[in-house]
Amino acid sequence: MSQTIEILIGGLSQGAVYCLIAVGLSLVYGASRILNFAHGSLYSLGGYIAWALVVGYFNLPLWLAVVIAIPLLFATGVGIERLVIRPLRSWGNWRINTIMATLGLAFIIENTLQLVFGPGTKSIPAFIEGTVTLGTITISSYKLWMFVISLALVGALEFFLARTRYGQAVRAVSQDIQGAKQVGVDVNQVFAFTFGLSVVLAGLAGILLAPIFLISPVGGWGPFLKAFVIVVLGGLGSTKGAFVAAFVLAILEGFVIFYIGPNWVMPAWLLVLIVVLAVRPKGLFGVWES
C-alpha cells in the first residue's frame, strides 16, 4: 500500500516537471503553430547555463544562477523566433520548413554544447538533501520541492494566460490570428514572447532535473520526446491538456518502472498515445483547428 503511494507521489513530482517542459511546447504551438523540435536541446541549454554558473566556472549560489539564466533563456527564445522562425513564415511551405529548421537548430545547439562542455555528463548538487517522512511514506525533500516549484511555475503561467490582458492576447492569437490583428495585438510580438517564455520554462525544467537526470548534450531528447507525447496526448496547443496528460503519463511511468522496468516506459507511453489518438485524433483537449 505505502509502496503504491510512494510511486504515486514520485509520479506526481515527476509529472510536475514534465508539465513544465510540455506546457512551453504547447504554448508555442498554440500561439504560432510552430512545433519546436529544438525544445529538448533548450532544456539541456538551461541545465548547462546553471552548471556553468554554479559548478563549472563561477561558483554562484543556485538562486542567483537561476536569476541570470532566466533572461538569457528568454533572449535565446526571442532570438530564435526572430532570426530563424520569422523569415520562414512568409513562405507557403512554412509548416514543413519550420519543422526542418527547428530540427536543424536542435542539432546545432546539441553539438555546440558538446564542443563547449564535452560529451560527458554534468551535475548540479541538489539545493536540499534528505527525506521527508509522512507515516510510512518516505520521499526525498528535493522531489517535494521540485513538485512545488514546477507546480507554482505552471500555475503562474495559467494565471497569466487566464487573468492578464496580455495573456488573453496570447490566447486570442492562438484562436484567431486575423481577429487578434484586428483588435490591435502585435502578433509577431506574441510569437516572440511565447517562444521566449517556452524556452525559459524548458530551461528551468533542465535546471530542476539536473540533480536527478544529469546534464548531457543529447540529454534533451528524452525529456523532449516525453514532452511531445504529453503534448500530443493532451492536444496540441492546449496547456490544460498538457497539464493533465503530464500527470497521467508520469504516474504511469512510475508504475511501469516499478513493475516492469525502465526500458518499457516509452513503449508504454506510445501505446497510450496511439490508443488515445485512435479515439481522439486531436488528443484529450485539442480542439483548435489550424
Binding site: 503553430r33 511531445f228 500530443v232 496540441l236 526500458n263 506510445l270 498515445l273 485524433p281 486531436k282
Partner: peptide
C-alpha cells in the same frame, strides 16, 4: 494506419516518436 486519423504536425510527432523509440527496441 494510425496516421490516417491524424493531421499535419500530429503525424510529424507520431512518426518521429517511432524513429526515436526504435533504437531501444533494437537493443531489446
Amino acid at each position: 494506419l494510425p496516421t490516417l486519423r491524424l493531421k499535419g504536425e500530429y503525424i510529424a510527432l507520431y512518426t518521429f516518436a517511432i524513429h526515436l523509440a526504435l533504437p531501444p527496441i533494437i537493443q531489446q
